[in-house]
């Protein structure tokens, strides 16, 4: 069979078009990432604010592959030099491909000493995870990493809803490492909460009720607020947060959490100096 030149041209043009169309599909995550991020960025910061490359100032760590989509440990380390007068005012975590991409925002004060954070998030799909720091002078810096989704039956969902509900609002506070006056010291704060991301039926009314999660957290020491957090359903069941404080001696740490049903949970713990477990 012979093809006319024009037909042949038409076919090769089509092939070329096909190649162009198919090419980005080879990197679907990347292509989607950019689109998702463009929208999220615009919503969070508008289109005219510059976001600087955060390398050297900010580092985000997450496993290459999420072992369990429901519990992906991530940590963000700040590396502000001793000569830098600025401090990180807030840190926002974004998981591009999640249904609610903004996992949450931490607001710091100088009383944190170091603006490091560790928590656990749900990751729905192959996704870029970003940490965007806003300095006290208003400048924005971003660090990012890429997490491959877990396979199998893992799902970004609750594992033991009943248990989390049975001790709903229970909190734990752990002092980590050596605690000295005026030296940055690490705290782990845990809240028992399903952070339920689906719909469930109300046992009494039989109506579907929406997601139920911790959306607000405030931490203070001796009445002075040092850290607040606004969160969403991308934070794992039984939310856990590691952060730093600058202890001024023995004192009392108070955490106050609220959830989307308006429940308020508040706990206080004494802070001890010296070697903690």
């Amino acid at each position: 069979m012979k093809l006319s030149t024009s037909l042949r041209f038409a076919i090769s043009a089509w092939l070329l078009l096909l190649v162009i169309l198919v090419m980005p599909a080879g990197h679907p995550a990347l292509a989607q990432d950019n689109k998702a991020w463009t929208e999220i960025r615009s919503e969070l910061y508008g289109d005219d604010r510059t976001i600087h490359d955060g390398s050297g100032l900010l580092e985000i760590e997450a496993p290459d592959r999420a072992q369990d989509a429901a519990l992906v440990p991530i940590s963000i380390k700040s590396m502000i030099g001793p000569d830098d007068e600025r401090y990180i005012k807030s840190l926002t975590i974004v998981i591009d491909e999640n249904p609610a991409p903004v996992a949450g925002t931490f607001h710091f004060s100088r009383a944190n000493g170091i603006a490091d954070i560790a928590t656990r998030v749900r990751v729905n799909a192959y996704s870029t995870i970003r940490a965007i720091a806003e300095m006290d002078d208003g400048q924005l810096y971003m660090a990012e990493t890429f997490v491959k989704a877990s396979g199998g039956c893992a799902a970004p969902a609750t594992k033991n809803n009943a248990q989390a509900m049975a001790r709903l609002g229970d909190m734990r506070m752990r002092q980590i490492g050596e605690w000295e006056v005026d030296q940055p010291a690490e705290v782990q704060l845990m809240i028992s909460h399903p952070n339920f991301s689906g719909l469930q039926t109300d046992q009494v009314t039989q109506l579907w009720i929406p997601s139920h999660y911790v959306n607000d957290l405030a931490v203070s020491i001796d009445g002075q607020e040092i850290l607040t957090f606004e969160g969403d359903i991308s934070i794992s069941e039984n939310p856990s947060f590691n952060f730093f404080v600058m202890p001024q001696g023995e004192g009392e740490l108070t955490a106050r959490a609220t959830d989307t049903k308006g429940n308020v949970f508040e706990h206080s713990w004494p802070l001890r100096m010296g070697s903690a477990s």
Partner: peptide, 16 residues
Amino acid sequence: HRLPGALSERGDFYLE
């Protein structure tokens, strides 16, 4: 009795 809640939380994700 906890299947409906689990399906509502995981269903769309599994379908994907």
